[in-house]
Design a protein around this nucleic acid. Structure first.
Length: 227
DNA sequence: AAACAAATCAACCGCCCCCAA
DNA sequence: GTTGGGGGCGGTTGATTTGTT
């Protein structure tokens, strides 16, 4: 009870019940995603907006991929984590149907203990701090994710069996020995520059030498965007 | 069978950014 | 220019599940 005898807003916490899920699904089906803070009022749920959003995004969304992370997905998680660090939502954008939370959990349980604490940790933090200030950079980098998706979609098709419509040359993009092999035709050229991955659409690279899709995130020291 | 340990993962928290008023 | 609400993100927790002795 509040000071004036008014019952203070008490939000439910903890695991969701099937009934709560049902209410939330009905709400989203009717009102769409978003405006999460009005869910409690409109759907009769005693959950705050954040809780509702989280439940929907991580569990109830119909487009979620169910089942275990496949070995193929695991490789992508490792590769992208090497590129992006702990930016789970960024990594998740390249894995359709998987959530940042899921990927984060997976990495934490499977790989964290294998990574020794070292000065790499410190430099990761510096990198993260730098990135936050570099809005412009980030937007550009996210654009390049689109290019990554094209790569990833090729892997997707190659995961189990190779559809006949996949051109031979695209098959050259293979993930072996912890790296993408260089690929010169019909896809992307992958290389490591200063230890960071670069993906260059081959068509762009060959038609215009000046275009360099540098998603080597961390060479930001060279920029002075925010004087 | 039972006690204990470890792994898993759903959900929380605090912080941050964005943007409308 | 400031403020506050909404929402997104990464780190963390802790109940439950799974493995081990």
């Amino acid at each position: 009870m509040g000071r004036w005898g008014i019952i203070e807003e008490e939000w439910r916490k903890g695991p969701w019940t099937a009934e709560e899920d049902k209410l939330l699904i009905e709400y989203v089906n009717f009102h769409g995603e978003g405006r999460w803070n009005s869910v409690a009022r409109l759907a009769g749920l005693k959950r705050n907006g954040k809780s509702c959003r989280l439940r929907w995004v991580n569990y109830l969304r119909p487009d979620l991929k169910k089942g275990q992370i496949t070995p193929y997905e695991e490789r992508i998680i490792l590769e992208l984590h090497a590129m992006w660090g702990n930016r789970w939502s960024t990594i998740a954008r390249s894995l359709p149907g998987r959530t940042d939370n899921e990927i984060k959990n997976y990495w934490m349980t499977h790989f964290k203990k294998k990574i020794k604490k070292s000065r790499i940790d410190t430099s990761e933090k510096i990198k993260t701090r730098l990135l936050k200030r570099q809005q412009f950079q980030q937007k550009q980098l996210l654009n390049n994710q689109i290019d990554m998706k094209r790569i990833m979609s090729l892997f997707e098709e190659n995961e189990n069996n190779v559809p006949s419509h996949v051109p031979k040359q695209d098959m050259a993009i293979l993930y072996q020995n912890n790296t993408f092999h260089e690929q010169e035709q019909g896809g992307f050229f992958y290389s490591m520059i200063n230890g960071y991955a670069n993906y260059v659409p081959v068509s762009e690279a060959s038609s215009n030498e000046d275009i360099m899709w540098d998603i080597g995130l961390w060479n930001l020291d060279d920029f002075n965007v925010n004087p």
